[in-house]
Computed example of a mutant assay.
Amino acid sequence: MRIGINLLNLSQDRFGGVEQYITNLIGHMADSGENLTLFLFLKRKLKNVFPQHEKIKTIRFRKVMDSADVYDAIKKCKLDLWFCPLHRSYLPSVPVPTVATIHDVLHTEYPDFVPGGLEENNRYYGQYTASFDAVITVSDFSKSTIARQLSIPEKKIHVIPLNAPAIFDQAPAKITMKGVKQKYQLPDSYAIYPSSYNPHKNHLNLLKAILILREKYNTTIPLVLTGYADKSNGVYQSVLQFIRERSLEKQVWVLGYVPPEEMPSLYWNSSFLVFPSLYEGFGIPLVEAFKTKTPIVCSNKGSIPEITDHAALYFNPENPKEIALKMMELLNPLTRKQLSEKSSLRSRHFSWKKTASETLKVFRSVTRN
């Protein structure tokens, strides 16, 4: 099977969950042992993102000013299938079966959080969804919302969960964990929230909960925030402003972008993951916590309860007081121990090998190859 993968919208700035999905999926499909060739359609400036592999070919474009160049390449490569794993990366009238990944439809729940809002995004999807031979998504929650909001038949939508990056598969050496702790001058215990600075990630309600704990319950929980943010990012600036105005500088560590190899140590050193997101199609940090046996206290919205499956404590993310009280429960060592054991058990349900295998099964179903 000759599979073209549309990565022309891929950015190399800072990899988030979708980029982690793409890189891990491609690597595992190439290693699957199946008779296939993966043709990666990329902009030329992207280098060293994907591993060298006999089953991976790259088709590079300096600039994609005219989609005719892409169609020509599709024909020259004699593709059996066209795969679009990135948001808003679709082409009309592709001459081979098309499979698209839609992680979520955030714009339908929180249109103000997404460029283009509800109407523009719905209009965009409306141009293409009828031409998809199959859609892959990452949770039952996303499947039901995609079917309802985008009018795609459920039988076309296949749920294939994700996994954490491979670096989370093994615990770091103790000297490595100690080195990361010293590098960022972190306390002995803290809550961690790794996240981009997007409105639905709900940072301010988390900070309000931290403040409630300090002022109403005389309880101080150190908080570590990770995630790349441009200085022009409004959410990021509001977080910094809140910290300054409430004198939280000695309680909240804003680390910014953390190299991937250091992230497992941040989890292993932490007391628990707090995950207050208002909306997720999946939520890779939840699986990162599972892989590191980290207790979880999290939002009860979106796909989050489905992914955690009772291996967490839950709160209403729109209620800072409730967030505060649930976090306070995690100060009990016995509660943390129980949730750590649940995390470890839940981690077994997620595998990139399984993600790749199920994805290839969908590909075969639409190509019959």
Rank of each mutant, 00 (worst) to 15 (best):
K47M: 04
K47A: 01
N48R: 11
N48W: 13
V49G: 04
V49A: 02
F50N: 04
F50H: 07
F50R: 01
F50I: 01
F50A: 02
F50G: 04
P51A: 08
Q52A: 10
Q52E: 13
Q52S: 10
Q52Y: 06
Q52N: 06
H53S: 14
H53W: 15
H53N: 15
H53C: 15
E54L: 09
E54N: 15
K55R: 15
K55I: 13
I56Q: 15
I56L: 08
I56C: 09
I56P: 10
I56D: 11
I56K: 07
K57M: 06
T58W: 05
T58F: 09
T58A: 13
T58D: 03
T58R: 13
T58Y: 08
I59N: 04
I59F: 01
R60P: 08
F61V: 02
F61R: 03
F61K: 06
F61D: 09
F61Q: 05
R62E: 15
R62N: 15
K63F: 05
M65E: 09
M65T: 15
M65R: 11
M65N: 14
D66W: 00
D66T: 02
D66S: 00
D66A: 01
D66V: 03
S67V: 00
S67T: 06
A68T: 15
A68H: 10
A68P: 05
D69E: 12
V70L: 06
V70R: 01
V70W: 07
V70G: 11
Y71V: 06
Y71M: 02
D72G: 12
A73E: 09
A73Y: 08
A73K: 09
I74E: 04
I74R: 09
I74C: 00
I74N: 11
I74Q: 03
I74M: 02
K75P: 12
K75Y: 07
K76M: 11
K76H: 12
C77V: 08
C77T: 03
K78Q: 13
K78W: 02
L79Y: 07
L79A: 07
D80A: 11
D80M: 02
D80T: 10
D80R: 04
L81M: 12
L81W: 15
W82L: 06
W82N: 03
W82M: 01
F83K: 11
F83D: 13
F83C: 08
C84V: 13
C84T: 14
C84K: 11
P85G: 01
P85C: 03
L86R: 08
L86P: 03
L86H: 13
L86I: 09
L86Q: 12
H87G: 14
H87V: 13
R88G: 02
S89Q: 00
S89C: 07
S89R: 03
Y90G: 00
Y90M: 03
L91E: 07
L91W: 07
